[in-house]
Nucleic acid binder design. Structure first.
Length: 561
DNA sequence: ACCTAATGTTGCC
DNA sequence: TGGCAACCCTTAGG
């Protein structure tokens, strides 16, 4: 497949000048600059040093100011855009896609590991996610039961790979009923085929992904972004949702009837400095509490039965957003919080007050999520905007520094829901984690953003899931609590990935994926034309059967190659 | 195939 | 603390 450049030509542009306008927009200024440069375009063949180029640009910019005054009355003009790197705005190189391969700007630090001196193209962390990671010692913090279980498994399988982690075939169901990007996902605690989803608009989706067309969207629960979903520990027919509208809702999944458990903005909009938004949320079954945190650094404990809300407790930097809360699954008194003050913190909820955290886990950037491990509750996994996953192997051990840091591409982007690495609750070793990948990979000529399965005890990329039809980034992912199923939220769509029944044994080094999950065809513009947007499991996908033969692609695992 | 709107948050000064 | 610029791999729709 011949590589193609996205921009094949740099067009001549005609600018109609506003004769009266005093102000010059930034675009115009840039164009002025380009205009000046055009003059020496023909002789711009020497190898200018960096500084020379900078001087030249400054001079051009200075000239452009006077020119824009002089030429205010002139109209229209024709200019040509010279090839300039869109990242650093310098000439001589270009960043961007060439075909399905993204070329980094060489003037910037590596987009993956953030270190200077190389680009993602030759970043060692891109070659192998385990680069620089010292694997956990085998003794680790496993209980004796897990150890025995592990030994049994070890005789058969050399590595920690639950059966579906490297599926021979994966089928996918896709649905799109959200009108804005998906922000959170939650599997039903008892009903195996129900997936809940929240979106940026505040809508709550309920989807039975086996009966693909059974779906409901509750649009009147919240008025803006739904940040977290959690089932009631006592009634699995009701779900709590935390929203940036400042309320916690308690919704009956059957009826869609919703009650308010809390409202932090009872007096309505009084300006942005007082409007409170709710982010991190978790439920503590033992104490019958909903724990909720806001965008000013405060935590609230809400009694589920009495709806009694205590005083807010400052648990993160004043005025900072607390994006994640997690109650320890084994030790009910332990709470983990994280926020955009670059900290994750461990608390004892019996003695909560500002500054009384048991431990502060420092990060270099915002912490998108922090979770205790799902079975033993002794490990901690965090996702930080510095493109690193961090693992602490034991909350009872030394917490001064993480046990491992795994470089992984999950940058912040204003258009994307922040990435959160999620544990596999079924993994007895508590080492399998799923997280979507930001940077793309060229898969047979298509730029795709896979969903990564990472063994956090070694840092190894165990598997990557992608579909040639799904070209969007999948920042939201959740393992099913019991089944070999993964749910993903990608833009406004939801995906269910599950292994197909094996027809024949495949080679272990190949990850084979059966595509045809998404639709590439044109969609109707109406966002609510729902049934048309559904697609059943790939094996039933009509599109792929009628128009083209079912696409089956073989992808080599990108591990250690 | 190209263009553009929608969209906030982070980090730095 | 407030203000402000930057933000590189977005996505959908026209």
């Amino acid at each position: 497949m011949a590589p193609q450049t996205r921009k094949t030509s740099f067009p001549k542009i005609v600018i109609e000048r506003e004769t009266e306008s005093e102000q010059s927009s930034s675009e115009e200024e840039e164009e002025d600059e380009e205009l000046d440069e055009e003059e020496d375009d023909g002789v711009f063949t020497r190898n200018a040093t960096e500084e020379e180029e900078e001087e030249e640009e400054e001079a051009a910019a200075a000239k452009s100011v006077s020119n824009s005054k002089k030429m205010k009355e002139k109209a229209p003009i024709t200019i040509s855009l010279k090839k300039v790197c869109k990242v650093c705005k310098r000439s001589g190189h270009q960043a961007g896609f060439q075909g399905a391969t993204y070329i980094d700007c060489p003037m910037k630090p590596c987009f993956l590991c953030k270190m200077p001196g190389h680009t993602t193209m030759n970043c060692p962390h891109r070659v192998a996610t385990e680069y620089g990671v010292i694997p956990a010692p085998q003794r680790s913090t496993r209980s004796s039961v897990d150890y025995v279980f592990g030994r049994q498994q070890m005789t058969r399988i050399p590595k920690i790979k639950p059966s579906f982690v490297i599926p021979d075939l994966v089928s996918c169901a896709v649905i799109r009923y959200h009108s804005r990007r998906v922000t959170c996902l939650e599997f039903h605690p008892t009903n195996n085929n129900i997936l809940l989803s929240g979106d940026k608009k505040g809508q709550l989706g309920v989807w039975d992904y086996v009966k693909v067309h059974e779906k409901t969207v509750y649009g009147n629960v919240h008025s803006c972004i739904l940040n977290n979903l959690r089932f009631s520990p006592t009634n699995d027919g009701t779900v709590y949702a935390a929203s940036s509208d400042g309320t916690i809702s308690c919704t009956d999944l059957e009826t869609g009837l919703s009650q308010q458990l809390m409202d932090l903005n009872p007096n309505g909009w009084q300006g942005p400095s007082s409007w409170r938004m709710l982010y991190g949320m978790d439920v503590n079954m033992e104490k019958n509490l909903v724990l909720i945190a806001d965008n000013f650094g405060f935590l609230y404990l809400v009694d589920i039965r009495t709806k009694n809300t205590g005083e807010g407790i400052l648990i993160h930097k004043k005025g900072s957003k607390v994006v994640g809360l997690h109650c320890n699954p084994v030790h009910p008194e332990l709470l983990l919080s994280c926020g955009n003050d670059h900290f994750a913190r461990i608390w004892d909820i019996r003695q909560l007050e500002a500054g009384s955290s048991l431990h502060d886990l420092v990060h270099r950037r915002v912490v998108n999520s922090a979770y205790f491990s799902p079975r033993s509750g002794t490990k901690i996994l965090t996702t930080s905007q510095d493109n690193r996953l961090r693992v602490w192997d034991s909350i009872f051990g030394n917490l001064d520094s993480p046990s491992r840091e795994i470089v992984h591409s999950h940058d912040f982007n204003r258009h994307l829901t922040p990435f959160r690495a999620e544990w596999d609750p079924k993994d007895p070793f508590e080492s399998l984690v799923v997280i979507g990948r930001y940077i793309s990979e060229n898969y047979n000529g298509i730029a795709l953003h896979p969903i990564d399965f990472i063994d956090v005890s070694s840092g190894q990329l165990v598997a990557e899931v992608m579909d040639p039809n799904i070209v969007t980034i999948s920042p939201v992912n959740k393992f099913h609590p019991r089944d070999d199923v993964l749910a993903s939220g990608s833009s406004r769509s939801l995906f269910i990935w599950k292994p197909k029944v094996k027809e024949h044994q495949q080679e272990k080094t190949n990850f084979i994926f059966c595509g045809a999950a998404g639709k590439k065809g044109k969609r109707k513009s109406g966002e609510d034309s729902d049934d048309d947007d559904d697609e059943s499991f790939a094996s039933k996908g009509k599109k792929s059967n009628t128009k083209k033969p079912t696409r089956t692609r073989h992808y080599n695992l990108k591990v250690g190659s």
